[in-house]
Amino acid sequence: MHMNPIVSIIDDDESVRVATSSLVRSLGWGARLYASAEQFLASDEVDGVTCIISDVQMPGISGLEMYRRLLDSGVRLPVIFISAFASDLVRRQALEIGALCVLSKPVDAAEVSRHLETVKTGGADAAR
């Protein structure tokens, strides 16, 4: 049986988590939801994840810091950052550590779909 690829959605705003989850599920992906970077890092569920969609600014560990920790531990996953305050600095920092993109909230469903399709077809590196 073919399993849907999994997206981990990390955002401290429950309404954003639920909306993003609905979107990725409608695109044929599975979704795992986390209320914080700490919750995701502690979950031991990184295996099997195809892509991460994470807020940048959250209480505690930021999305960028979480992704740096994953990279430091040898985990290389495509990541789409979303932010209500996507400054040029945040965008530059995210792209420097390998993010696919930084999308502004509210996210554009077509844009998320386009990036996930790139990940699904194995073109994550081509999207950069």
Rank of each mutant, 00 (worst) to 15 (best):
K120S: 12
C101E: 15
G48N: 10
S73W: 09
Q57W: 07
I61R: 08
V75S: 08
K120Q: 10
D13K: 14
V18D: 03
L27Q: 00
A94K: 11
N4Y: 06
G123T: 09
I53W: 07
P5Q: 03
R91K: 15
D88N: 13
G74F: 00
G98K: 05
L23H: 01
E45P: 00
L27K: 00
A99W: 13
G48K: 05
R76G: 00
Y67C: 03
L116I: 06
Q39L: 08
D11V: 07
E65H: 00
E117R: 13
S104Q: 14
G122K: 07
M66C: 14
M3A: 15
S21V: 06
A19R: 13
S22V: 08
R68N: 10
T20R: 05
D72R: 10
A94I: 10
T50H: 02
S26W: 11
S73D: 14
G30W: 02
G28I: 07
R17W: 06
D125F: 10
T118G: 15
C51P: 09
V16M: 12
L33T: 12
I97A: 11
V102H: 02
R69H: 10
L41V: 08
P5T: 05
L70W: 04
V102R: 12
D11M: 12
D47W: 03
A31T: 11
M58P: 12
E117Y: 04
S73G: 13
Y67R: 02
R91M: 05
A94W: 14
L89M: 01
R114F: 11
G74L: 06
R32K: 12
D72E: 14
R25F: 00
L27M: 09
M1Q: 02
T50R: 03
R114I: 01
I52W: 01
D12E: 11
S43Q: 03
H115G: 00
C51S: 12
H2N: 14
A35P: 13
T118Q: 14
S15M: 13
T118R: 12
L33C: 13
S73I: 02
C101D: 15
S104T: 15
R25M: 14
L95G: 00
R68S: 05
T121W: 03
V56G: 09
Q39M: 12
I80H: 10
M3Q: 14
V18K: 11
V46S: 09
H115E: 10
A94T: 10
G122P: 11
S73F: 02
L95P: 01
Y67M: 07
R25K: 15
S54K: 08
I52G: 01
W29L: 04
F81I: 09
W29T: 11
T121I: 03
R91D: 00
S62P: 05
N4E: 04
A109Q: 02
A37E: 04
L70C: 12
V18W: 08
G122S: 09
D55M: 10
F85P: 05
S36N: 06
A35D: 11
G28E: 00
D12S: 11
I53Q: 06
E38W: 01
H2G: 03
M66Y: 07
T20M: 15
L27I: 04
I9Q: 04
M1Y: 08
M1D: 06
